[in-house]
Design a protein around this nucleic acid. Structure first.
Length: 540
RNA sequence: GGCCCCAUCGUCUAGUCAGGCCUAGGACACCGGAUUUUCGAUCCGAUAACCGGGGUUCGAAUCCCCGUGGGGUCACCA
């Protein structure tokens, strides 16, 4: 079934296949955040649609509760916008198969349920929850698989009518054929089949008239002419029932493709928001949490800002690049070949096929994600780096916007110089905050290294002299500063490193960063001298 | 527990369908070295895997069977 073997073994088949365009969908429920694993599933749907010049649909699964949609759906749509995964039909833009909110499609589900009822493919079940529970327990006790006893099936039409008239609560159940097997040919898992005799009759419409996911989803997939149902593996078991519903509705199957779920780093367990506390202890995940702890408070998001690495929003807020996330997500459970890792969006679209989806779960690897980020950041044009960093500096109060909300040209120019000096050291946009010393006189000193490099025997005296030499220096360019420092070191018969390290600590407060001459040049002569004074003053 | 899925370096994976080109390739991480005023970047190098057992075959990571392990799912959630 893999590699589209069927297609070329039976070329005649393709003549009967309508030239229907590929239509995929992602159907999130409005939970208030976008799960990174869900995003991977959405991405694969999007990729498959784009690869085939097809249509990608966003459909909102809000059958369950109609809470404040605005705040619950907003972050999800934002995640799609941020990653630039455009949808062709769905919220905000509509489309020919709308509405795209399940809460607005209730008449469609009701009609479909009525039809199944009328055709005897579903039945009204008056069984009480207590009775069902008792049946289940009895089955458990006898160690036999539970399936519905279907007492309500004995009822005559007249009795059913009476019970409904009396207002007796009931649900609609799909009547699972127990005399056959159900089989699908999954695009990633191959042939999978189930024994109908083992499947309980699923509720398709609740007592309150609201349809259930399994049912609504199929009704919508049929109505929206979905050709490929690409979703996470945890739905594989559901597929038996859904396939049956497709049949009952007189529709042909879409192609099913069950992706392995995204697992927690270095594990085979599904990545879950409920296990966040556990993840904090995970060494590779810990780095991400730590980064959030350090960055979010600085940009006005208290603590973790309600964000964590399970959410797509976390990566946006901490300054990842959409291309890096897309690249990393695409490589999670899919590969192009035996060596290609770095892929542009276009490359991925061109090469993405379902038959190269891996079958076993893939653990999210924060290290690898970060390495993709490093690559894409280094490939980003300078002006775009500046654009990405500026919001962080603004939010952290390190630069101010003008009254019209724009950045003053000289500020922008300076930011550009800092970003250039940082070079490859800037991996995330938020990394600009590690270079706050270019923007404020309130330095944070790395005490340990300050003691080691500045407060060391003999160094303060040398630095006082060096400070005087610097004060006489007119040409404050990095090259000249280097020449001055080297000459002075030779004069004093000291290694240049003594002055290099001490100067860095004095001017930036830190022991790491861009070249020390670049730092001094960026800080400027007056401020550099003042900082040396301040540092020496700290020695008391 | 029933049903279903899965199983290659620490991690992501190539190779499995069409058995030999695999003394198993790549990437990330880790470790070592070079370079560098720091960090980073870069370059070089090293360590590291076919879950186990039976078959089939001249030959098995690849096919078959049986185990084992991991995971998913068993709602009037999605």
């Amino acid at each position: 079934m893999r590699r589209g073997v069927v297609g070329w073994l039976c070329p005649s088949l393709s003549r009967f296949r309508s030239p229907m365009t590929v239509r995929t969908r992602f159907a999130p429920s409005p939970t208030g955040y976008m799960h990174i694993g869900g995003m991977r599933t959405a991405l694969f749907n999007w990729l498959w649609a784009r690869h085939n010049n097809g249509t990608f649909i966003l459909r909102i699964d809000d059958t369950d509760e109609e809470r404040n949609m605005e705040s619950a759906l907003g972050p999800i749509l934002q995640a799609f916008r941020w990653l630039d995964l455009t949808w062709d039909e769905g919220p905000e833009i509509g489309g020919p198969h709308g509405p795209y909110f399940q809460s607005q499609r209730k008449p469609l589900y009701a009609a479909a349920a009525e039809r199944l009822l009328a055709e005897g493919k579903a039945y009204r079940d008056f069984e009480t929850p207590e009775q069902i529970k008792a049946d289940r327990e009895a089955a458990d006790k006898e160690k036999r698989p539970y399936i519905n006893i279907r007492r309500s099936l004995e009822l005559s039409p007249a009795e059913i009518e009476r019970l409904v008239a009396e207002g007796k609560p009931s649900v609609v159940r799909f009547l699972v054929p127990r005399d056959r097997t159900i089989a699908i040919d999954d695009a990633v898992r191959g042939h999978v089949e189930w024994n109908g005799a083992l499947i309980p009759d699923p509720v398709i419409v609740r007592t309150n008239g609201v349809p259930l996911y399994n049912f609504a989803s199929v009704v919508d997939d049929v109505a929206m002419e979905i050709t490929h149902v690409i979703r996470s593996e945890e739905h594989l078991t559901n597929t038996a029932v859904q396939a049956l519903i497709f049949e009952a509705l007189g529709a042909s199957f879409p192609v099913f493709a069950h992706l392995p779920y995204v697992a927690a780093p270095a594990s085979k367990e599904k990545l879950s928001k409920r296990k966040l506390d556990q993840y904090r202890k995970n060494p590779s995940f810990k780095k991400m949490f730590d980064r959030g702890d350090s960055v979010f408070p600085k940009i006005g998001l208290g603590g973790q800002g309600g964000l964590d690495p399970v959410m797509v929003e976390y990566y946006e807020k901490i300054g990842y690049l959409p291309d890096a996330i897309v690249n990393a997500l695409a490589r999670l459970g899919w590969s192009l070949d035996d060596h290609t890792e770095i892929m542009s969006r276009q490359t991925i679209i061109e090469n993405f096929t379902l038959d190269r989806v891996v079958k076993n779960p893939a653990g999210l690897d924060p290290d690898k994600l970060f390495s993709f980020q490093s690559h894409w950041m280094s490939a980003l044009p300078a002006a775009m780096k500046d654009d990405g960093c500026i919001p962080y500096l603004v939010k952290a109060g390190l630069i101010a916007l003008q009254a019209d909300g724009t950045v003053a040209p000289d500020v922008r120019l300076f930011v550009g110089k800092v970003v250039a000096a940082l070079g490859d050291r800037l991996k995330l946009f938020s990394d600009i905050l590690d270079a706050s010393y270019f923007f404020t006189e309130t330095l944070e000193y790395d005490e340990k290294n300050f003691q080691k490099r500045v407060a060391k025997e003999g160094v303060p005296a040398l630095m006082r002299e060096f400070r005087a030499r610097l004060a006489e220096t007119e040409d404050w360019s990095p090259t000249n500063l280097e020449a001055v420092l080297n000459a002075f070191a030779t004069e004093k018969n000291e290694p240049a490193a003594t002055f290099i390290h001490a100067l860095r600590l004095c001017v930036t407060g830190q022991s790491v960063g861009p070249g020390v001459y670049d730092c001094a040049a960026l800080v400027g002569k007056d401020r550099s001298l003042a900082r040396i004074d301040a540092a020496l003053a700290r020695l008391g």
